Simulated scan of single mutants.
Amino acid sequence: MSKHNAKARQIKGKLKETLGKTMGDKSMQRSGRSDMLRGKAQEVAEKAADQVRRHTRHH
């Protein structure tokens, strides 16, 4: 998954969480938070993978 997809998932999650708050839908809020966290984890994993790739190319 690309960094862009990870960011998109975070944004989608934030929107879903906000909509859930507005509608009083706790399940939607939790789902949105979950999406945000998955997106952040993917973003962090991609950054780490980029660092590893850069580091291994120089050796």
Rank of each mutant, 00 (worst) to 15 (best):
K47P: 03
R57F: 15
G20F: 09
S31Q: 07
K12Q: 12
I11P: 03
A6Q: 02
A6S: 01
I11E: 08
N5Q: 07
D50P: 04
K3Q: 12
K16G: 03
A6M: 02
L15D: 10
K40L: 04
R33S: 12
A6R: 01
R38M: 08
Q29H: 04
M1I: 12
H4R: 11
H55M: 14
Q51Y: 10
T56W: 02
K14W: 06
R38T: 14
L37H: 03
R54Q: 14
S34W: 02
G39D: 00
K47I: 15
V44E: 06
G20K: 15
K21F: 09
L19G: 14
R57M: 15
A45S: 11
K14R: 13
Q29M: 08
H55I: 09
K21M: 09
H59C: 09
K7Q: 13
E43M: 10
M36W: 10
I11Q: 10
R54M: 08
T22H: 02
G20P: 15
K26W: 08
R9L: 15
A8G: 06
D35C: 10
G24I: 06
R53E: 12
D25N: 10
S34N: 04
S34D: 00
G24T: 12
R57E: 15
K21Y: 11
E46P: 07
Q42H: 02
H55S: 14
H55K: 12
K3Y: 01
S34A: 02
H58G: 00
S27G: 06
H59S: 11
M36Q: 00
A8S: 01
R30V: 10
N5F: 02
T56P: 04
N5W: 01
G39R: 03
A49W: 04
I11D: 11
G13P: 04
R38Q: 05
A48C: 06
L15I: 09
G13I: 08
D50G: 03
A6G: 05
R9M: 15
R38F: 00
M36F: 14
T22I: 14
K47R: 11
I11R: 11
A49L: 05
A8P: 00
K7H: 07
G24P: 15
L37V: 05
D35G: 04
G32Q: 05
Q29D: 04
M23T: 06
A45T: 03
D35K: 01
Q29I: 05
Q10F: 03
S27P: 06
G39Y: 01
L37I: 00
V52D: 05
S2C: 06
M1D: 10
K26G: 11
R54D: 14
A45P: 01
T56A: 01
L15A: 14
S34L: 02
Q29Y: 07
R9K: 12
L15N: 14
A6Y: 03
I11V: 08
K26R: 06
A45F: 07
A41L: 10
A41M: 09
T18S: 13
K7I: 13
K47C: 08
K12L: 14
K16N: 01
Q51M: 03
H4G: 07
A8H: 09
T18R: 08
I11A: 11
S31P: 05
A6N: 02
K26D: 14
K16H: 06
G24W: 08
R54Y: 13
D25P: 04
